[in-house]
Simulated assay, not measured.
Amino acid sequence: MARTIVIYIDIDDDLGEIGIETPVIGEEAVRKAIDTASEYMVYDSDFNSMVAAFNTYKRLKREGEDVEIVFIAGSNKSELEAQLAFSSKIDDVIEKLHPDQAIVVYDSPEDAKAIPIVQSRIKISAIEQVIVEQHRGVEETYMLIGRYLKRAFSEEKFSRIFLGVPGLIFVLVGIFSLLDLSYYIGPVILATIGVAMIIRGLRIDEQLEKWWENSVIMVITSVISIISVIIGIVSLDLELQSIRIMTLSQGIYIVLGTLLPYFTFSIVVLFSGKAISKAVYRDIRIWHDLIKVVSTIFLYYVIFDFLNEIIRNQFLGGEALFTLALSSAVIISSYIALSFVEKSKFTKTG
C-alpha cells in the first residue's frame, strides 16, 4: 500500500508567529498545534486550512489508508527565504517518513507557490484549496479591519507599503517645505506613489532582495544607477527653466544632451556591477557584461556626435553612420569570437 502524507502549507510562517515550530509531524503533534492556533487565529483562514487538512487525514485513516499528517511552514521574511526554508523542511519530512505520494492543503495564492517545490520531490495525488466564506456583522467587520491593520504595522512585507511609502512622503514634504520648494510637493508625492506602485507591481523589491542575498555589489551599483537617473532628471528641469524660447531641434538637443550622460552612466554602472560580481566568483561569462559596457559607451558617443551635428545644422549622416557601422562590426565580431572561445572551453571541461 502506498504511503500518503497530508501536507498543510504555511509558506509565510504564520504558525511561527504563535510559537508553533514546523515541521509538525504526526496526529498528536498536529492536535496540539491546532489547539494552540484555536487560541490565536480561530478566525483566520490558516486555522480553517489546518482543520481541513486534519479532517482529510482522519478520513483517509478511517478508510484504512497508510497516511500521516504534516504541517510545514516557510519564513515570514522574503519570498526567497520562505521558499528556501520550506524546501529544507520538506526534504527533512520526506527523509523521515519516506512517503510515496502527497495530498496538499493550502488557502492563499502565496501558499500555492510551495506546490511546485513539493511536486519536484514527491508525487502529488490531490490538491485542496480552502476558501472560507463568512458573513460578519458590523463588530466582526471592525475586528477584521483591526486584524489587517495590525498585520500592516507588524509584518515586514506589509509595513514596507503601509508605513514605508507614507513615511517617505512625509519626510520629502518636510524637506521641501524647509527648502521653500512647496511648488514641487505635489509632483513629488505623485512620483513617490508611482515609483512605489511600479516597484511593488513589478516585484522590483523582491529582485533587489535576491540581488542583496546573492551580491551586495549589485545592490550598491543599482542605488548609484538610480541616483544618477534622478540627478539627470533634476538637471534637465533646471536646464529647461533657464531657457524660455527654443526651436524644436534645440529642445531635442537639450533633453537628450542633458539626460544622455546620466542615463549612460547609469547603464554602464549596472553592467559593470554585474561584471564585478562575476569576476568575484570567477565566472567566465564576465565578458558578456564587458561587451555591454563597451557597446553602451560606443553608442553614447555616436548619439552625442549625431546631436552635435543636428544642433549645428551640419548633419550629413556619413561620419555618424560610419562610426556606428564600424563599432557595431567590431563589437559583433568580438562577441562571436568570444562565444566560440566560451563554447570550446565548456566542451573541453565537459
Rank of each mutant, 00 (worst) to 15 (best):
R3H: 12
I5M: 08
V6L: 04
Y8T: 12
Y8E: 14
I11L: 15
D14Q: 09
D14W: 07
L15Y: 10
E21Y: 10
V30N: 08
R31V: 11
K32M: 14
A33L: 02
D35N: 05
D35C: 00
T36R: 13
E39R: 12
D44A: 08
D46A: 12
D46C: 13
F47M: 04
V51N: 00
F54S: 01
F54E: 05
L60N: 03
R62Y: 06
S75N: 10
S78G: 12
E79S: 13
E81D: 15
E81L: 07
Q83N: 12
L84D: 13
S87R: 12
I90Y: 05
D91P: 09
V93H: 03
H98F: 10
D100G: 01
Q101A: 12
Q101Y: 04
A102Q: 03
V104C: 02
V104Q: 01
V105E: 01
V105Q: 00
Y106C: 03
E110M: 10
K113L: 06
K113W: 01
P116L: 03
S120D: 11
I124A: 05
S125A: 13
E128P: 00
V130D: 03
V132C: 09
V132H: 09
Q134S: 11
L144V: 04
I145N: 08
I145P: 07
L149K: 12
A152S: 07
A152P: 04
S154Q: 09
E156F: 13
E156V: 14
K157W: 02
S159D: 00
I161T: 11
V165P: 01
V171S: 02
L172N: 12
F176N: 09
S177P: 02
L179T: 04
D180Q: 13
P187S: 08
I193Y: 03
A196K: 02
A196W: 03
M197I: 08
I199Q: 01
L202G: 09
I204P: 06
E206S: 04
L208G: 04
W212S: 15
E213H: 15
E213K: 15
S215H: 13
I217N: 08
I220G: 06
I226L: 15
I227C: 11
S228I: 06
I231Q: 09
G232D: 08
I233E: 10
V234D: 09
L236G: 11
D237R: 15
L238I: 14
L240W: 11
Q241P: 03
I243N: 12
M246F: 06
S249C: 00
I252R: 02
I252L: 05
I254C: 02
I254D: 00
P261V: 09
F263I: 13
F263L: 13
T264F: 06
F265Q: 02
S266I: 02
L270C: 05
K274N: 07
A275P: 00
I276P: 02
Y281S: 03
R282N: 01
R285T: 05
L290K: 05
V294C: 03
L299Y: 11
L299D: 04
Y300A: 08
V302H: 07
F304K: 15
D305R: 08
L307D: 12
I310V: 10
Q314T: 15
G317E: 13
F322P: 02
L324G: 03
V330W: 10
S334V: 07
Y335E: 08
L338A: 02
S339K: 15
V341I: 15
K345Y: 14
G350S: 10
